[in-house]
Design a protein around this nucleic acid. Structure first.
Lengths: 101, 101
DNA sequence: CAGCAAAACAACGTCATCGTGATACTGGGT
DNA sequence: ACCCAGTATCACGATGACGTTGTTTTGCTG
C-alpha cells in the first residue's frame, strides 16, 4: 500500500505526465523531450530520472545522446482509465449539484 | 493534464488508499473507518472530505452518523491495474540488474 | 434543555517536492 | 588535446501536503 501510493505519485505531476505523453510516440532523446514539452532541460532530466527509477521508462545512451523509452505501454491504459474515471467523477458531481438545486 | 495529475494525486497517499480500502466492502461511517484503519478521527475525516471533493466517495448522513460510500467501484480496477504495473516495473528492474551482473 | 457521542473544522509545525540557475560531467568531432 | 552539444547534478527558495492537538458543530437521548 505504501509502495502503491508511491507509484501513483509518479503520475500525480502535470509536467511528468507531459514528459510521458511526449514519449507516447516512441523513444526520444532528452533534448527532443525538452522541445516537445517546453520544459527546462534540468527539469526534464529530473523527471526522466524519476520515471526511470520508477521503472516506467528505460534509459538508453546512443552515442552522445540519451534516449528514453516507455517500457510497458500499458501505462497509457492506466492513464486512459484514470481519465475516464475523472470524467465520470465530474459528471457525478454535476448531478449531485443538480439534485440540490 | 493538470486535472489528471490532481486525480492521480488522490491515490498517491498511503492513508488515503487505506481509507479507500476500508470502504471496499461497502458503506461505512467515519468511526468504522477509524477503527478499520487505526488512523486518527481528524485525519480520516480530512481524507474522506478530499475523496468526496474528488468525486470518488459519496457522503450520506444517517441520523447522527455519516456514512461514506465509493461511488464508482471501478476505481478499484484502476488500483488493481496500478498494482499490476508496479509489479511489472519491479520485475523489469530486477531483470535490468541481472543483465548488468 | 442538558449532556453526550460523532463528525468537522482551525491553526500550527514539519517535511517533501517542485522548478530554477549555475555548475559539472560525457563523448564525439576537429 | 580541446571544444562543444547533450545530459546530469547541486544548492537553494518557495510552495503545498500531511498529521496532530484542541475546539466547535451537529443531532440524538434522557
Amino acid at each position: 500500500m505504501e509502495a502503491l501510493a508511491e507509484y501513483f505519485k509518479v503520475f500525480s505531476e502535470p509536467n511528468r505526465l507531459a514528459v510521458l505523453e511526449a514519449l507516447r510516440g516512441g523513444p526520444l532523446n532528452v533534448t527532443a523531450v525538452v522541445d516537445k514539452t517546453g520544459l527546462s532541460q534540468a527539469l526534464v532530466s529530473k523527471h526522466l530520472k524519476l520515471l526511470t527509477i520508477a521503472g516506467v521508462v528505460q534509459r538508453r545512451p546512443e552515442g552522445s545522446l540519451v534516449f528514453y523509452e516507455v517500457i510497458d505501454k500499458s501505462v497509457f491504459k492506466l492513464i486512459g482509465q484514470a481519465e475516464k474515471l475523472l470524467l465520470a467523477a465530474r459528471r457525478q458531481q454535476l448531478d449531485a449539484l443538480a439534485a440540490i438545486l
